[in-house]
């Protein structure tokens, strides 16, 4: 069944001009980004699509490492929910990480990422699960009561409606007080993508606008 689905996934660069209109990228940047996509998507199977294994391999240089957050990032990139990324999904998602992308898109993306159960809010248990996962990834041990006090403190600050959950509005207010929470949402590399992958000019189909 999965194999059938991947057969239907579009491959290749597609229409770079249309993608440039849908994203903050220029046509040249879309073509340079496609060079990166080709590298990542050919790491395990050269089929023009990025699997979760290839995504993890690009992030951690190993397919062994399991990360709750790499999983969540992949799932949010995978808007067609087919378990694989085509170039359009990749470009649309990475556009949010561009330094020129609207801050509201970054705030929204990160909220969705942290909203593990996709209920429209973040509850204590989800937050604790993410803290525990982060500590485990980093090989750090913190006593449960210390973790609980970190969660308590966070909810005291963020949960201004005192209903035991952090909704999108509360998340937005928290981020505005702590802009560093968005630091992972901006990749300077995307601004220099045409110089990082200059080989795109050899494959360029169009003159940039």
């Amino acid at each position: 069944c999965d194999a059938d689905l991947s057969q239907q996934q579009p491959r290749g660069l597609g229409n770079p001009e249309a993608l440039a209109r849908e994203t903050v990228f220029s046509v040249s940047e879309i073509e340079a980004l496609y060079e990166l996509f080709k590298k990542i998507s050919s790491a395990v199977i050269d089929d023009g699509l990025i699997t979760k294994d290839e995504f993890q391999l690009a992030l951690f240089k190993t397919t062994k490492k399991e990360s709750l957050f790499a999983d969540r990032v992949f799932d949010l990139f995978d808007t067609k929910h087919k378990g694989i990324l085509d170039f359009k999904e990749f470009a649309l998602a990475l556009s949010i990480f561009h330094p020129n992308a609207p801050i509201n898109d970054k705030i929204e993306f990160l909220f969705q990422l942290y909203d593990l159960k996709q209920q429209g809010f973040i509850k204590r248990q989800e937050l604790k699960q993410m803290v525990v996962a982060t500590l485990a990834e980093a090989g750090m041990n913190l006593a449960d009561d210390v973790i609980e006090s970190i969660i308590d403190k966070t909810f005291e600050e963020a949960d201004t409606k005192h209903d035991g959950k952090i909704d999108k509005e509360e998340w937005r207010n928290l981020v505005l007080h702590h802009p560093s929470l968005l630091k992972n949402m901006t990749l300077q590399y995307l601004k220099d993508i045409t110089t990082t992958f200059p080989s795109f000019v050899f494959h360029s189909q169009v003159d940039d606008v």
Partner: peptide, 25 residues
């Protein structure tokens, strides 16, 4: 110090959230 951070600051340190590595091909 993780204990002085709020939970989201701590989570943002996760390597899984740092996509810079995608460009290190």
């Amino acid at each position: 110090q993780p204990t002085s951070m709020n939970a989201f600051e701590l989570i943002s340190m996760s390597k899984g959230l740092n996509l810079e590595n995608l460009f290190d091909t």
